[in-house]
Design a protein around this nucleic acid. Structure first.
Lengths: 203, 203, 203, 203
DNA sequence: CATGAATGAGAGTTCATTCAT
DNA sequence: GATGAATGAACTCTCATTCAT
C-alpha cells in the first residue's frame, strides 16, 4: 500500500503546488490575466503539465476557492467552544479579520474577486457561502435570543454584521485605507470593530 | 480664439464619446473583456482613432474612473443643503447605495477593481478617495458634535460607516448575497442600512 | 473613385494570395493539418493578418472551394455552343479531365477532400454540386432523347457518367495508377474515357 | 519453444487489440482526429503502452491499412468459385460496393486518404494496390477471352471498371450524392452498377 | 483628423512522444 | 511489460498597439 499512498501524496503535493501558484497569480493579476502559462512558469513546469491535474482554468479557480473555504471553516469551527453567543460573535469578527490578514489573497478570491462563475460550476461557491452565512445567522439568532444583543430582525442583523466585517476587511486588504498610516491602522481597525460590536450589544 | 476654442470643444466631445462607450463596456463586460476594438466599434470609429485621444487602455481606465467620481461627487454635494448633519449622514448612505445600484460597474471600477494602478497614475485615484473620505469625516464630526450621533472617536466612526456601506454595497454588486431572493434583497438592504444608522443615532 | 477602386483591388489581391497559399496547403497536407500559421508563413505575413480577410479557417476553406467551382463552371459553359448533345457530353468528359489535370489541387478540394462541412455553411458547396449535377443531367437527357445515346434511365446514366469520370480522375490525381508508367497513362486515360463513351453511344 | 510462442501470440493479440481500436477510431473520426490517447483510452491501456507495439502513429496507420486489405482480399477470394468470368466480374463489383458500405472509413483509408505516406512505407500500400489490380485484370481478360464481355483492350477495360467502381463508391462515401435522398440512393446505386456492367456485356 | 493594414505577444488547449520507474 | 508524469510543439484565435497614408 505504501507505493500507492506515496503516489497519492505526491499527486496531492503537485496539486497544491499548482494551486498555490494559481492563487498568487489570481490575486496579483486577477482571474483574466492570470494565465495557465504564467502559473506553469512560476512552478517551473510546462503548461501541458497543469492539464494533468486540472481540467481547465475554471477548475483551478474553483479548487483554490474551495481550499480557501476549507481553511476558513476550520477557523470558524474552533469558536464553537465559546459558551456565550455574543462573545462568540465578537470572536468570530476577530477571527474573520485575522483570516483576512493572514490570507489576504484567499480572502480576495473568496469574497471579492469575480471568478468565471458559470452558474454551472457555481455550486461549490454557492454552497460555501451559504454554509458560512447560515452559521453566522445562527450565532446572531442565539445572541439576540439570549438577550445579550439588541433585539432586531435576525436576517438584518446578520447582513449588517457581515457587511461591516467584509467592508472593513476588503477596504483594508485592497489598500483603500491609505489615508491612515500603517501603524495607525494596526490600532484603529480593531478599535472600529470593537466599537461596532459595542453598538450591537444590549447593555 | 474662436477656432482654437471650437477645436478644443470638439476634442473634448470626442473624448466624452469614447469615455461613454468605454464606461458602458467596462460596465457590461468588465475591464479585461472590454477591448479597444469593441469601444471603437461601438462609436463607429477605427481602433486607431482611440489612440489619438488616449495614450493607452490604462489612460481610458483612469479617465472613466475620474468621470465616475465626478458623477459621485455631484450626488454627494446635493446633500449639502440638508441642515441636520446626522440626517445628512443618513441621506449620504442612501445616496451611496443608489449610486452603486445605478452604476454598479462604475462603483466596481471606483471602489473594488484593482485596475492597472501604476503607482504613477494612482494619484488621481488616491486624491478622489481622500476627498470622499474627508467629506465623510466632516459630516461624522458635525453629527457627533451636534449631539445627534453617539459620541465616539471621529476616525473610528467614519471608518465604521464607510466600511459598512462599502461592505453591503460591494457584497451586493459582486453577487455574494445569492442566499436571498432578489425581491427580498430589494427590501432587506435598505432596512439593514436604516438599522445600522439607528445604532449610531443618539436617542 | 480611383482610390476606393485601387483599395478594393488590393484587398481582393490579398484575399487571392491567401486563398492560393491555403489551397496549396489544404491539398498538400489536408484540411486538418493545414494551419493558419503555415498559410501565413507561406505568404510571409503574420497569422493575425489572415483574420483581417477571413473570419476563420472554415471561411477560407469555403472560399477556395467556391473559387474552384467558378473556374470549373466557366469551362463547362464554353461547351454550350456544341449543337449535338452527345458530342457535348463527350467534350464535357474531356473538359473534366483537363480541369482536373490543370488544377489537381482544386479538383481534390472540390470533389475528394473532407472539409469542415458544418452543414450550416455547407450551402455553397451543396449548391455548386447541385448545379453541376443538374447541368450534367440535362445533357444526358438531351443525348438520350436525341437518340444519340443508348436509351436508359436519365438519373442512372448521369450517375454512371459522373462516377466513371470522377473515378478515373481521382485515382489519377491521387496517384493510384502507379502500376502504369506515366507516359503510358498519358495515352491510356483518354483511351479509356473514349472507350466508355463508345459504350454509351447508340450505334 | 512453447514460451516464446505464447509470448508471440500474446504480443500479436495485443497488436490486434490496438489495431481494432485504432480502426474503429479512424473510422469514426478520421485519421487526424483519432489520437493515440483516444486509442489507449478505448482499450484501457496507457498511451505509452501503444508505443511498445508500434513505433508511431504512422505505423498504426499502415497496419490498419494492411488489415483493411486483408479483409478486402478475403472477400475477393470468395468469388473465385464462380465459374463464369463475367459473372465473377459482376459479383466483384457488388462485393466492392458492399465492402465500401460496410467499412466506409476503411475504404476511405485504403483508396482515398493520403495518409502519411513516407514513400518509404509506401511499399505495402503499393503492393496491395498492385495485387488487387492484377486480380481485376485477370478477371477482365478471362471475361473478354471467354466472349462474355465486349472485346476491348484489357488494360483499358480494367481501368474503366475500376474507375467506375471507385468513382461511384467514393462519391457515395464522401457524401457527394447529396442531391439524392438516402432511400433513393439505396436503389439507384446498385441499378447504376448493373447498368454499367450491362454495357460491358457481349450480348 | 482618421484609418486600413499589419503584427508581436499571448491566450487556452491538445497532441505525439519520451522516459524513469 | 506497463505506466504515470512530463513536455515541446503545435493549434485557432484575440488583443493592444503602431504607422504609413
Amino acid at each position: 500500500m505504501g507505493i500507492a499512498e506515496r503516489k497519492e501524496r505526491e499527486k496531492q503535493g503537485m496539486k497544491d503546488l499548482i494551486l498555490q501558484a494559481a492563487m498568487d497569480l489570481f490575486v496579483e493579476e486577477g482571474y483574466e490575466k492570470a494565465s495557465i502559462r504564467k502559473i506553469a512558469d512560476r512552478i517551473e513546469y510546462s503548461p501541458a503539465t497543469i492539464y494533468l491535474y486540472f481540467k481547465d482554468k475554471d477548475e483551478i479557480f474553483h479548487a483554490v476557492h474551495e481550499k480557501g473555504f476549507d481553511i476558513f471553516f476550520v477557523r470558524m469551527e474552533k469558536l464553537a467552544v465559546i459558551a456565550d453567543p455574543f462573545e462568540r460573535l465578537e470572536k468570530l469578527g476577530e477571527a474573520y479579520l485575522h483570516f483576512a490578514r493572514e490570507h489576504p489573497q484567499l480572502y480576495d478570491l473568496m469574497f471579492i474577486m469575480w471568478g468565471p462563475m458559470d452558474a454551472l460550476k457555481d455550486d461549490t461557491h454557492w454552497h460555501c457561502g451559504m454554509r458560512a452565512h447560515t452559521a453566522l445567522r445562527d450565532i446572531v439568532r442565539e445572541s439576540i435570543e439570549s438577550g445579550r444583543m439588541k433585539p432586531m430582525d435576525v436576517d438584518v442583523a446578520a447582513m449588517a454584521v457581515w457587511s461591516f466585517m467584509h467592508g472593513i476587511v476588503s477596504l483594508h486588504i485592497r489598500n483603500r485605507f491609505r489615508m491612515c498610516m500603517p501603524e495607525d491602522l494596526e490600532k484603529i481597525i480593531p478599535e472600529t470593530i470593537a466599537t461596532m460590536f459595542r453598538l450591537f450589544r444590549q447593555e
